[in-house]
Design a protein around this nucleic acid. Structure first.
Lengths: 200, 200
DNA sequence: TAAAATATGTTGCATATGCAACTAAAGGTG
DNA sequence: CACCTTTAGTTGCATATGCAACATATTTTA
């Protein structure tokens, strides 16, 4: 259902149907576990999930699968590879039955609002990556956690990662993260229950 | 001298003079040590260094200056803040007498080749940041170093960072970096002299 | 070329944190 | 509800690495 992506930021302040009229695009369907994009591909279209879920993975030297991210309806993927004409070094795999809208990059560039939105999306990712680097650059776990929590600019924080994901995000060991969270709780620096944190 | 920026990637496959005709822009001059952009500013123009050098810094909680990067002739700065309309959280300071070309973002968007180039620049930065995160995510110093060196895709590597900068880039201690480099040299995993490295 | 400044290497030491292995709690499923 | 799976917390231990302080090497400046 194309309507699903009305909420996609790429179409911010646009009507999907209207914009698509002037674009070169196609809709493709994928079965569970099939490859939507594969390492080495050179792609010329932006992909947007219309229905279903997908994962982005990378295989390391030993061939182990490495989860980079999850894709939900309305999410864009692999934009930077399209823009830079670089061969993909990630894989995008359907987690269930998935529909994808592919928009030809060249035709998208003729559309000013969409181009502006694309720029915004990538610039936003840029800031996000920079933020993560800032957290990771801190010299100990406590500072990493605090850097992360402060970035929410509020005392009450709900995060959308479990402990494992948070540990990966900050580049630390899960058990060490748990340990330090405990310490900080007992020192009354923070309080938390599950994924809700509070700065004291 | 506007000619200095012919090499700027923003003008890739363009003639600066030609493109500027259709753009809203201005050229500003700054004395050594003056602020080109200041934390908190909301900016609507992309800046490009035409002459001189500048630094990008951030002040931490204690007010200590933190070097984020250096700007040379032809380099773009603070693009992501322009695109996202976010207030700046960095400062750009002239290291000597500096001339800056400011191009109004809205008018730039009307120019397809420049917009495409801007997208490329930001996408490229994105990949660079991702790469750095990959290095930093490794679990020990040796792996960080190797991840960094492998990313050059060649056995002979010249880097443009000194040890201190490299240590910061990888998020580790300088002396620990030196130590590990020594170890790797004596184990004949790598060889190096100054900023030239070789994978064995 | 001497002297000062900067960059890199070395080393001892303390400890923060990764790792492994386990326990406890929560969530999901039939 | 009982069972299984997933997620989170705990703890002992070994060690990699941060830190500090110094030594050496290289570059810059006058």
């Amino acid at each position: 259902m194309i309507n699903n992506i009305n909420s996609c930021i790429l179409f911010k302040e646009c009507t999907v149907y209207e914009e698509l009229k002037s674009l070169k695009y196609e809709i493709r369907r994928y079965n569970k576990n099939s490859y939507i994009l594969e390492e080495g591909d050179i792609i010329k279209s932006l992909g947007i999930i219309i229905s279903g879920n997908a994962k982005i993975v990378k295989y390391d030297e030993e061939g182990d699968e490495n989860l980079i991210g999850l894709l939900q309806v309305g999410e864009l993927f692999a934009e930077v590879f399209v823009i830079n004409k670089n061969p993909l070094y990630i894989n995008v795999i359907a987690l269930n039955d998935v529909e994808v809208l592919f928009i030809d990059y060249n035709s998208l560039l003729t559309n000013k609002p969409l181009t502006r939105n694309l720029l915004e999306i990538i610039a936003e990712k840029n800031l996000t990556l920079n933020q993560r680097i800032n957290h990771m650059s801190k010299h100990n776990i406590r500072e990493k956690i605090l850097s992360f929590l402060y970035s929410f600019k509020t005392k009450n924080i709900s995060i959308n990662m479990d402990r494992n994901e948070l540990a990966n995000y900050l580049g630390i060991d899960r058990s060490a993260l748990s340990r330090e969270l405990s310490n900080m709780k007992s020192e009354k620096i923070i309080d938390y229950y599950k994924n809700d944190f509070r700065l004291l």
